[in-house]
Design a protein around this nucleic acid. Structure first.
Lengths: 115, 115
DNA sequence: TGCTTACGTTAGCAGTGGCTAACGTTATCG
DNA sequence: CGATAACGTTAGCCACTGCTAACGTAAGCA
């Protein structure tokens, strides 16, 4: 997941993923959509490939890259654990009310509650 | 979204988010869960705060941080556009079959199909 | 067989990121 | 009051990263 997260952090790579999502593309094809050089794109594809976010299909001298959405599974699930849980959000709000009422006693408890 | 993506790319920051998800915590409280120094955590919290992934509640000298899942909305939606669309995946598979059959004609088309 | 096309790789550079050490600030406590 | 506790901030360091320029390689083409 770490590799996927770091890969997606880059705007250029997100745009690359978008380009090869619905359609497989060659490197030069992809590179023509950006201002950076082709080797730069090649390096981005390397990162995406290592993170298993794209697949390659070699045909002669050309390499057709395509998105591999399954690579985002772990990261997506992790984010669902946050964004998705609006239930626990409400629970937190409720607990905060309770919290504010017995602030002092909690402060004491916190002292020994490290870790 | 860019800020959120970069913020989440860091394993330490993901762990911080996990810690303050169900419960608000102080900086030292958070820092005690890691090997790095407190200022380091403070800087991570700065990044998370700039990305609007956490909120702060000041109380005396202490600052209680809490996760703000809404900050991941954009990024989550973007990822859903990938991982979620298994329908388009099948569509791609079908198109690839078709693709392989008229490979040569597509090559010609691709020439002028840049951009 | 040479020439070209399509690509990967690498050195080297500038920018960025995460970290610690040291400091400054504000509230709390005695 | 002074001392302490809980922070944020910054300089400075090292590691990493994204980029270009230059190269090497393998397949297609004349």
């Amino acid at each position: 997941m770490d590799a996927a997260a770091r890969a997606v952090a880059e705007p250029t790579r997100r745009e690359i993923l978008r380009l090869v999502h619905d359609q497989e593309r060659t490197v030069t094809d992809i590179a023509d959509h950006f201002d950076v050089s082709r080797p730069a794109i090649s390096q981005h594809l390397r990162v995406l490939s290592d993170a298993e976010l794209v697949t390659v299909r070699i045909e002669g001298t050309r390499r057709y890259y395509q998105a591999r959405p399954e690579g985002l599974a772990e990261l997506t699930e992790w984010m669902q654990g946050f964004w998705g849980s609006s239930l626990s959000r409400l629970k937190i709000e409720a607990e905060r009310e309770h919290w504010n009422q017995k602030k002092l006693s909690n402060k004491q408890r916190r002292k020994k509650d490290i870790n």
